Amino acid sequence: MKIEYKYREDTPFIIEFRPNDYQWNIIEETYGEKGQKLVGDLVKTNSSGTVQYIEKEFHHKSTELHVPDNVELIIEGTEVKMLVPDHVLFDFDQFALKEESKAILSEIGKTLGQFDKNMEVLIHGHTDNVGDSQYNLDLSKKRAEEVKNFLLEQSNLGNISFLTEGFGETKPIASNDDEAGQAKNRRVEIVINLR
């Protein structure tokens, strides 16, 4: 069962089931009009002792994220995005990782290792708009795959599912009219959804 909630630092997340909130006969028959048929460790009683209900409280432990200096970290609600410029990872027009980029990806791997091991991590490749669009799309896919393959080799990340996608030049984050904007658009994004 999925339950949507808004994360708030230092605020517990509470799930409650109160049979008397429902006017359905089957609920009343199964659990009692005032929850008197509820059993188990999660059963609570209201302050007057007349109504029983189920309550489970979860306490969040905040995870501090450490990323290398040349990696941009963007947190939007439950989505965490690490933007790694392509010049940090690859030589011009190549998809094989630079030797020096492996230390940066190892650091990112340590950060990913702090999270729940059964999560999905999205790896998105992006390029600027210089050159053939199909070539750029293929290059972005290969670069995303190369990052995924390196992260999969990290011993502490075996249970994480890595999904890759190449977008080529279709999702710029800056203008492609000058070199500074093109440089920002050439990137690999590592995306975690903490929901």
Rank of each mutant, 00 (worst) to 15 (best):
T111E: 11
K117M: 07
K44Y: 08
E79S: 03
A180W: 05
H66A: 10
R8C: 07
V71F: 03
E72N: 10
E165C: 02
G181Y: 07
E100D: 14
E99N: 10
S62Q: 06
Y53W: 11
I54S: 06
S161A: 10
A183L: 10
A144W: 02
A103C: 01
N193S: 14
F58R: 07
N118A: 15
L112T: 05
P68I: 01
G35C: 04
S175Q: 03
I26S: 14
E9M: 11
D138F: 08
T164E: 06
D128Y: 14
S106P: 00
I108L: 09
F162N: 00
F167L: 12
S133V: 02
I190R: 06
E165N: 08
S101A: 08
E145M: 12
L152C: 03
I3G: 11
V67T: 04
Q52T: 04
A174K: 08
L152K: 13
K2Y: 15
G181F: 11
D21L: 02
H59G: 02
D178H: 09
V130L: 15
L38D: 11
W24P: 00
Y31E: 03
D177M: 08
N20W: 11
S48K: 13
D91S: 08
K110S: 06
Y5G: 07
S62H: 08
K34G: 02
H66V: 09
I192E: 06
H60Y: 13
L65G: 07
F92Q: 11
F167G: 03
E4W: 05
N25V: 07
F167S: 08
K56E: 12
N156K: 13
S47N: 02
D128M: 06
T164D: 00
E79N: 05
I160K: 12
N20E: 13
G40N: 07
F13P: 06
F90S: 03
L73T: 00
Y22I: 04
R195A: 15
D132Y: 07
D86R: 06
N20M: 10
L163A: 10
V67H: 12
M119P: 01
P85F: 00
I173Y: 07
I104W: 12
H124K: 05
E29L: 09
S101R: 05
F150P: 00
G166Y: 03
E9N: 13
H87A: 01
P12R: 15
I3P: 05
F95N: 13
V121E: 02
K44N: 12
E99S: 07
P172W: 11
H60W: 12
K110R: 13
F13L: 15
T30I: 12
